Amino acid sequence: MRTFPLAALVVLALAGCTANPTPDTALTALLDSIERRLALAEGVALHKWDNGQPVQATMREQQVLANVRAAAPGHGLAPQRAEAFFADQIEANKLVQYTLLSDWSRKGVAPHTQRCDLQGQIRPRLDELQVVLLQQLAAFDRLPATACSAALAQELDRRQAPQALVRATGQLCDKS
Rank of each mutant, 00 (worst) to 15 (best):
Q63N: 11
C116H: 13
Q56H: 12
D32I: 06
D88Q: 06
V11M: 14
P124D: 00
Q80L: 13
Q130E: 12
T18F: 14
P54D: 13
A150H: 05
A168T: 04
Q53R: 15
K107P: 02
S33N: 12
T99L: 09
R159P: 05
L143P: 03
A19M: 13
G74I: 03
Q154A: 15
D32Y: 02
P144G: 06
Q97A: 09
R37L: 13
Q121W: 01
T113M: 09
Q119T: 14
L77D: 00
Q121K: 09
V131P: 01
A164D: 01
H75V: 03
A71L: 05
A70F: 06
P162D: 12
A87V: 01
K107W: 09
D117C: 06
A29T: 14
F4G: 06
D174Y: 06
A15R: 03
D24S: 14
Y98Q: 11
T3E: 15
L77V: 01
H112L: 08
C116S: 14
Y98M: 11
E128I: 00
L143G: 08
R158F: 02
Q56M: 09
E155Y: 00
A78K: 10
Q114C: 03
A164C: 00
M59E: 15
R60W: 09
A168D: 00
P162I: 07
L165M: 02
P21L: 11
A110E: 07
A41C: 04
A13H: 08
R60N: 10
F86M: 09
T99R: 14
A45E: 01
D103F: 08
D103N: 10
A39G: 08
T113S: 12
G52C: 04
L38S: 05
P21M: 08
L9A: 13
A82R: 04
P144S: 11
T18V: 14
V132D: 05
V11L: 15
P144E: 07
T146L: 14
A110K: 07
E35N: 10
L134M: 06
G43M: 03
A150G: 03
G43K: 04
